Amino acid sequence: MSENTSSSQATRRPDGTHRVVITGMGAITPAGVGVRALWGTLMARRSCIGPITKFDTEGYDVHIAAEIRDFDATEHGLTKKEARRFERFVQYAIVASDEAMAQAGLDREAEDATRIACVFGSGIGGIDELQSGFTTLLEKGPKRVSPLFIPTMIGNIAAGNLSIRYGLKGECLNVVTACATGAHCIGAAVRDIRHGYIDAALAGGTEESVSPICIAG
């Protein structure tokens, strides 16, 4: 048996499909920035739900949420221009992915970028930008709506920006299945690797739906 054959068998399951491993993780959660903050909070059994501070909830039926508090993207690798242009759900995706990519230690220069996918979803996308855009349209007219409205709020812009940031040239997908979005994206990436469509994937989900319209709805 050749060395290549042995290596190939070591990376396959009994049914012949490829084995899949997680090599890096990243997280932005109400517990804080990073996987360690999330894990520590879980182990301490601490709740991150509290009064909403982002906006005044007087007149609303809901007054509590699991907010991501005191987050400044420029403190975690984004430029001021990126922080201004990207909606919060994109900022979260980038910071969490930077952590995961660093942990994975993937040498992208040595890999075939066309075999690395980005499967990163958002159930709602840029809801703040959507609400702001509607307000601007109604109050100031169509000429005052930002020309970047669509590429700022559309749900798959997180996956798009991640692919650009890391030079990933494989499939770029945004699976949207409500609260299951992140898990569904990871599952889709696992299946694609398992069946040989890709060699690796950046997979996960991102959301920021603590907003007046979501709380009202």
Rank of each mutant, 00 (worst) to 15 (best):
Y166C: 07
A200E: 06
I28Q: 02
H184K: 12
V119H: 07
S97F: 06
E67P: 04
N174C: 13
V210H: 12
F71V: 12
G59L: 04
Q91F: 05
T74A: 11
Q9R: 09
L137V: 03
D199E: 09
M25F: 06
E109Q: 12
V90M: 13
I154E: 03
D98E: 11
R69K: 15
I94F: 14
F86K: 01
R45C: 11
E99K: 01
L202N: 07
C214I: 11
I124Q: 02
M1I: 09
S7V: 08
A203G: 08
Y92E: 04
L202Y: 08
F89P: 01
T136L: 04
V33A: 06
T53I: 05
R88G: 03
D128M: 09
Y60H: 14
R69P: 01
C172Q: 09
I186R: 06
R84N: 10
V190S: 01
I49V: 14
E171R: 14
L162H: 08
V190G: 00
M1H: 06
L130C: 03
A201T: 00
R88C: 03
G170M: 13
R144A: 12
F120M: 11
Q91A: 15
V95L: 14
S7P: 00
I116W: 08
E3Q: 15
E139H: 14
R115P: 10
K81C: 03
T152F: 00
D72K: 09
L78E: 04
D107G: 01
G155F: 00
V145F: 07
S7Q: 10
S163K: 13
N156P: 00
E99F: 10
M1Q: 04
A104T: 12
V119C: 13
V35S: 14
E87Y: 01
A203N: 04
R85W: 12
K140A: 12
Q9F: 08
D15R: 11
C179H: 08
E3K: 15
A203P: 00
A183M: 09
G182C: 02
P14K: 04
S211M: 10
T136S: 13
G126P: 00
L148A: 10
K169Q: 15
L130D: 06
R144S: 09
G125Y: 07
R36M: 07
G155T: 06
F55I: 07
N174Y: 03
I49T: 14
A113L: 08
C214D: 05
L137C: 04
R115H: 05
P151E: 02
C172I: 09
T41E: 10
L148F: 11
A96M: 07
K81Q: 12
D15F: 12
V145T: 07
L38M: 15
C118F: 04
D98L: 10
L202P: 06
G123M: 04
R115Y: 07
S47Y: 00
M25T: 13
G123S: 03
H18N: 11
R194G: 04
E99H: 01
R115A: 10
L162T: 00
A180S: 15
G205E: 01
L38S: 08
I28W: 01
T206Y: 09
C185G: 08
T53G: 15
R88Y: 08
Y166E: 02
C172A: 15
A102P: 00
A31W: 05
A73E: 08
L78V: 02
E3L: 15
S209I: 12
A27H: 05
K80D: 05
D72R: 09
R194S: 15
K169T: 06
P147I: 07
C48K: 11
